[in-house]
Amino acid sequence: MHPAYVTCVCTAAYGLMKLAQALGANALADKDPLPPDLRQRLLARDPLFVASHWVLFTVAVVGVVVALATVRPWGRRFPRRILLTAAWTAGIFMIVRSFGPVGFGFIGDALVLTGLRPPPPQHAAPARELARWDLMLWSPFFLVWGLSWTATARRLTRTVRGERKTGAGGGRAGGTAAPPR
Rank of each mutant, 00 (worst) to 15 (best):
P180S: 10
L135E: 11
D46Q: 03
T7A: 11
A173D: 13
F106Y: 11
G171D: 07
T157I: 10
A90Y: 03
K31P: 03
L111Y: 00
V6L: 15
A44R: 03
T157N: 10
R161F: 10
R77I: 14
T114I: 00
E129S: 13
R158G: 15
G146A: 03
Y14D: 10
E163Y: 04
M136I: 14
A86M: 02
W74V: 13
F93P: 07
R132C: 12
P179N: 10
A127C: 02
G175R: 04
R41L: 09
R155M: 14
Q21K: 08
P33G: 00
G171N: 08
L38F: 11
R154A: 15
G108P: 00
G15A: 11
G146D: 01
M94R: 14
L135F: 15
T159Q: 13
G103A: 04
G167T: 06
K18L: 11
G103D: 05
V50W: 04
V9H: 08
W149I: 07
P79V: 07
T159S: 13
D30V: 02
M1I: 12
L113H: 04
T150D: 03
R181G: 12
F93A: 14
P36W: 06
R172A: 07
I92C: 08
V66H: 01
F106I: 06
S98T: 05
V6W: 15
A60D: 09
A153V: 05
K18G: 07
M136N: 12
R81A: 14
P120H: 11
A87W: 02
M17G: 14
A20G: 14
I92G: 08
L56I: 10
A60H: 10
A25S: 13
V64A: 09
P120M: 09
A4F: 01
L84H: 02
T70R: 09
M136D: 11
L113D: 04
P126V: 08
